[in-house]
């Protein structure tokens, strides 16, 4: 492994470690909750980066796979004695199976990956705008299914009863693994060929790269991670409805990736950190405004507006995001060697 990559890994994993340590030191439940949510975002954003960053195709469907993972794990882990209330119409065999949350989280990822493998292959032949558009359509379809498949998802109503299993150390550990996987995938043969196809589709095809198959692999990996992330989130909040896995969440996840820089894992990580903190700040402000009663109505949507403006500003100034092309490790090494005397 090149020294630059090692340094990247050290820095990014160091950030995750910091995420675990700070709440310990502060000793605040609220800070720990925020840190856990941030670590889940890390999993989701880095997962999206494995597909979007390497293929160059923006995927709007990611949050859909997150939802699939969350619901799959929910169906398998809600205690059997609670099923009658939570999911009264669940099919016979499924109603009897119960696994531990950890297994559920893993299976959530597997189910999401399977669904991705099944639906996505034809879509991977598309490039540019049609590819993005169909991923958007896929998100809507997944949402429709989640909202109407009452037997399994409890329909548009809130599904409750998931065991609370997502802890900060567990999430941070998974986030670390995901970061390692994303960096390794980027440097793998598939990752390299994919990145070549991102820059010049024809040239990469001439090198013998079967582009749809490459994209398909990346998409499945990305869906696997999204499913795991979704399941983690499910066991974090313990009750949710399909609405959680739609445009609002998509916007946040995409915003994190794009502001950080979608071509690098560093960008994904930094984006997740920055936007999560910005979001917490804004949400606190919104709550404070509503509590103070300065405005007659509830103040809603300010958080999204500010995030949208931030996204536009970054795109105007630096269309590739904060880390547009180079991971942080090589970036530091380069600066370091440049400053060194000849």
């Amino acid at each position: 492994m090149k020294p630059g990559n090692i340094l990247t890994l050290v820095i990014l994993l160091g950030l995750v470690a910091l995420l675990v340590l700070v709440p310990q030191l502060v000793g605040s439940r609220v800070v720990e909750r925020i840190a856990t949510a941030l670590a889940i975002s890390l999993v989701l954003v880095v997962g999206l980066q494995t597909f979007t960053g390497n293929s160059g195709i923006l995927s709007f469907a990611h949050v859909g796979f997150m939802g699939i993972g969350a619901y799959a794990s929910a169906v398998l882990t809600i205690p059997v004695q609670m099923r009658g209330m939570a999911l009264p119409d669940l099919y016979g065999v499924l109603a009897q199976i119960q696994v531990t949350p950890l297994v559920g989280i893993a299976l959530g990822g597997v189910v999401a990956a399977l669904v991705a493998a099944l639906v996505a292959y034809p879509l991977m032949r598309l490039s540019d705008a049609p590819a993005v558009i169909t991923s958007f359509a896929l998100l809507v379809v997944i949402y429709t299914v989640l909202q109407h498949w009452s037997a399994v998802t409890n329909g548009p109503r809130t599904l409750f009863g998931l065991p609370k299993a997502t802890t900060l150390p567990l999430t941070a550990a998974i986030a670390s693994v995901v970061i390692v996987v994303a960096l390794a995938f980027k440097e793998s043969r598939t990752g390299l060929l994919l990145r070549a196809s991102r820059d010049d589709e024809r040239a990469a095809a001439a090198l013998g790269a079967g582009i749809p198959a490459l994209r398909w692999r990346a998409f499945i990996l990305s869906a696997l991670i999204a499913g795991i992330g979704g399941a983690l989130w499910g066991h974090f909040v313990t009750s949710f409805s399909p609405k959680a896995f739609y445009l609002k969440e998509t916007f946040v996840i995409l915003g994190m990736l794009v502001i950080g820089g979608m071509n690098t894992v560093t960008g994904a990580v930094i984006g997740a950190f920055l936007i999560s903190l910005l979001f917490e700040g804004l949400r606190a402000l919104e709550t404070a405004l509503n509590a103070s009663g300065v405005f007659a109505n509830q103040v809603v949507g300010v958080t999204e507006i500010v995030l949208a403006l931030a996204m536009m500003a970054v795109m105007f100034l630096q269309p590739g995001g904060l880390f547009a092309a180079t991971e942080i490790g090589p970036l530091i090494l380069r600066r370091f060697t440049r400053r060194a005397p000849p």
Binding site: L58, L254, G255, V258, M262, L307, M312, F316, P319, G320
Partner: peptide, 11 residues
């Protein structure tokens, strides 16, 4: 950048 425009119009 094509991607940047997708993002700015989405934003």
């Amino acid at each position: 950048s094509v991607t940047a425009v997708l993002i700015t119009s989405f934003a």
